[in-house]
C-alpha cells in the first residue's frame, strides 16, 4: 500500500518536474515528496483513530490508578502510561506535582515524564511506516527501559530530598487521595468524534513544521551524503561516535516527529543503529527548554543528576545496540 507514495513521488519529481533520478537534487526531492505525503496521510488517519479510542483516558485517571501501586510494577506502569498518554510539555509541571501530591514516588513520576516525549502514537506510527516493526519494537523497548531504570535509580538515591521545598512538603503531606471519582461518565460516539477532531487539529498544528524540517534534513542527508561515508567515518570501529552523537543531540531540540525521518536517512546511509538511536533519543529527551521548566519543582542538583542519567543511558544503549548489531 505504501508504495503508492513512491509512485506519487516518481510521477511528481521525475515526471512532472523533470528531475533526473541520477542527480542528488532529484534524489533528495523524491525522498522529500514521498515521505511528507506518506507521513501526513498516515498522521491524519491514525491520530484520529487513536484519539477515538483513547478519548476517555486522562491524567487524573492515571494518577488514581498509579497511586498506591507497588513500586516494582509502578515504574513499569508509569513508563507505560507515559508512552500512551498524550500531553504537551507545558503540562509536565502540573502533572508532576499532581502525582507527587498524591504520594506517588518521584521515580514513578519521572518514569512517566521521561518516557512521555520519547514514545507516543505519532512516533510509533512513523517508525512503523518508515523503518519497519523490528526497529519500532527496539525503539519502544529501549525508550521504556530508560524511563523505568532512570525512575528506579532516582528513588534509590531518594530524589525526593532534592525537590523544591514546597513540592517536597506536598509529597510528605500526601494522603491516600480522596478518589474524587473523576467523572466517569460514558462518552457517546459524538463526544469521542469531537474529542478526536480537536486532538487531530491540535497535534497537526503542533507537529506539521517538525515533519517538514525533519523530512527536509532527512532528504538532504539522503541526497548529499555519499554512500559509504558514514560507515567509514562513523561506523562500528569508532567507539567514540556514540557519546559524540549524544552530545550533538543535546543542543538540537526536536520532538519525535521531526527526528524520525532523520533517523530513517541515517540508518539507510549506514550509520550504526545504536549510534542513530542514541542521537535521536538525546535530541528528543535531553533538551534544555524542558529542563528549565522542571526547575520550578526541582533543585539544580536533581536536574543535573537526571540530565547526566539520561546522557549516560543513551550512550550505554548506543554501545549495547551497536555491539549486538555487530554480533548478529
Amino acid at each position: 500500500m505504501l508504495s503508492f507514495f513512491s509512485l506519487l513521488a516518481d510521477w511528481l519529481v521525475y515526471g512532472l518536474l523533470g528531475f533526473s533520478a541520477e542527480t542528488r537534487l532529484g534524489n533528495a526531492l523524491h525522498f522529500f515528496v514521498e515521505d511528507t505525503a506518506k507521513i501526513f496521510v498516515l498522521l491524519i488517519i491514525m491520530i484520529y483513530v487513536i484519539a477515538l479510542i483513547r478519548a476517555s483516558l486522562n491524567v487524573e485517571r492515571i494518577r488514581n490508578y498509579l497511586a498506591g501501586k507497588h513500586r516494582g510494577i509502578g515504574y513499569f506502569l508509569g513508563s507505560f502510561f507515559g508512552a500512551i498518554t498524550p500531553f504537551c510539555s507545558c503540562s509536565s509541571i502540573p502533572v508532576f506535582l499532581g502525582f507527587t501530591s498524591a504520594g506517588i514516588p518521584v521515580g514513578i513520576s519521572m518514569a512517566f515524564l521521561i518516557t512521555s516525549p520519547l514514545i507516543n502514537e505519532v512516533a510509533v506510527l512513523l517508525l512503523l511506516s518508515l523503518l519497519g516493526w523490528e526497529l519500532t519494537l527496539v525503539y519502544i523497548v529501549v525508550g521504556m527501559a530508560v524511563g523505568i531504570l532512570a525512575g528506579a535509580f532516582l528513588d534509590l538515591i531518594r530524589a525526593e530530598r532534592l525537590l523544591q521545598p514546597f513540592a517536597a512538603k506536598a509529597y510528605e503531606k500526601s494522603q491516600p487521595i480522596q478518589l474524587q471519582e473523576v467523572a466517569l461518565q460514558r462518552m457517546s460516539l459524538t463526544d469521542r468524534h469531537n474529542f478526536a477532531k480537536t486532538e487531530l487539529l491540535d497535534i497537526l498544528q503542533r507537529v506539521w513544521k517538525w515533519v517538514f524540517i525533519g523530512v527536509g534534513l532527512g532528504a538532504a542527508l539522503h541526497g548529499y551524503v555519499p554512500d559509504g561515508w558514514m560507515q567509514e567515518n562513523l561506523g562500528h570501529g569508532q567507539w567514540w561516535s556514540v557519546p559524540a552523537a549524544v552530545l550533538v543531540g543535546i543542543p538540537l531540540y526536536s520532538n519525535a516527529t521531526g527526528v524520525i525521518p532523520v533517523m530513517e536517512s541515517l540508518i539507510v546511509k549506514g550509520l550504526p543503529l545504536g549510534t542513530t538511536l542514541a542521537f535521536c533519543m538525546s535530541t528528543v529527551a535531553a533538551s534544555f527548554p524542558e529542563f528549565i521548566l522542571l526547575k520550578q519543582v526541582m533543585q539544580w542538583r536533581l536536574l543535573a543528576i537526571i540530565f547526566l542519567l539520561l546522557l549516560a543511558s543513551f550512550t550505554l544503549v548506543g554501545w549495547v545496540l551497536n555491539f549486538v548489531e555487530l554480533m548478529w
Partner: peptide
C-alpha cells in the same frame, strides 16, 4: 504560580476556576 495551581488539584492546564470552583481543565 505553580503552587497555587497545585492547590486547586489541577493536573492538566489550561484550567478554569469560576468563583473558586474548578469547572474545566485540560483544554
Amino acid at each position: 504560580n505553580i503552587e497555587a495551581i497545585m492547590n486547586y488539584g489541577v493536573m492538566s492546564t489550561p484550567a478554569v476556576v469560576l468563583n473558586e470552583q474548578v469547572v474545566h481543565s485540560g483544554s
